[in-house]
Computed example of a mutant assay.
Amino acid sequence: MTSIKDVASVAGVSVATVSRVLNEHPAVRPDTRARVLSAVAELGYRPNAVARSLRTDQTRTLGLIISDVLNPFFTELARAVEDAARERGYSVIIGNADERPALQEHHVRTLLDRRIDGLLVSPTDGGTAVIRDAVRARTPMVFVDRWIRGIDVPVIHADGRAAVHDLVAHLYALGHRRLAIIGGPRSTTTGNERVEAFRTALRAHGLPLPEKYIGQGDFQTESGRRATAAFLDLPDPPQAVFATDNLMALGAMDELRGLGLRVPEDMALAAFDDIPWFLHTDPPLTAIAQPTGELGHRAVQALINLVEGRCADSVTLSARLVTRRSCGESEGSSSR
């Protein structure tokens, strides 16, 4: 196996000079740098990542803990994070919490044991002790999409409140007055924020949000089915349902279809988190779209800033409404 000493011998420089070139130290003359890189290419030398991490106390590795790898939103987010990290010379280890706090805690411990340089987390709940301990130990950390109140780390997320107001205004303009919502877990910031935004938007149009029109979901398909079935059992079922997650929206659509009901003729349906599948459902689903790719890139940049000793601020992006035929409208319009 080629060693750093072999590279130094071929390039005619010291081992220390080779190390400086490989670590992109500025204090190396251009012609020396070129000789070293030429020797590296000629010999096919690959630095030992473990040895380098022991010397520099950095592994050039980031951890990403997502709430549910089967959710297309988090799949797209993970891809954006990997792309952004690779562009900056970092690799990513992903842990899937599956919306389970205990599994989230397991992944945090495992990633910290692997000496990752920093951690991106989309929390499943209000915050486990291991996350708080990691922050207290000054582990570079950034929350993405969701966050934990009371923990002072940068948060990269999309504010969907204006888009929810646009959705309610859209449904109201289409003549819908009995509007229901399938909320996510109350322990998540996104679950609470979306329900409150919906309630506020209804109030602006003089509409109530009775408890019977609030379905409790868990960001999983089956909970969308259960909540929709409960709505349909009411004496006066809602005219439109807003699922605060894409998987719950698909569950709601499955429940309606299984009962022989049509969207939007029998019940209008909309979702938070637009995904490519929604263009191909029958009918295509109205949805609130987050800038998922940008969320991933901005989160990686914030985390690397912390890892490399720079400051990092929280970032709030905007979500937007994409209207399609599932609420009764013509397809293709959008706002914001």
Rank of each mutant, 00 (worst) to 15 (best):
P210N: 10
P210L: 09
I214A: 05
D254Q: 14
E255F: 05
I288P: 06
G175S: 08
L256W: 11
R88H: 14
P276H: 05
V155Y: 01
L179I: 14
L43K: 05
Y45I: 05
A249I: 07
H205T: 00
L321W: 09
A289E: 15
T292G: 06
L317K: 03
T190V: 13
P235H: 00
R29I: 13
R336W: 03
V28L: 10
Q220M: 13
T56H: 10
V81S: 13
A201M: 00
L261W: 03
G184T: 08
F74T: 02
D313L: 02
R161W: 01
I116E: 04
A11C: 09
A312K: 01
E265L: 06
D166Y: 06
F198Q: 00
A201S: 02
R55W: 03
P101N: 10
L37W: 08
L77K: 09
G293S: 11
G175T: 08
R100Q: 15
G183A: 14
E82A: 13
T200A: 14
D68N: 09
R203D: 12
A243R: 05
R115I: 03
Q104P: 07
R310K: 12
A51K: 09
A27M: 15
I93L: 15
T228G: 06
A173I: 08
I156G: 03
A287G: 03
E329A: 15
S122C: 09
S326H: 11
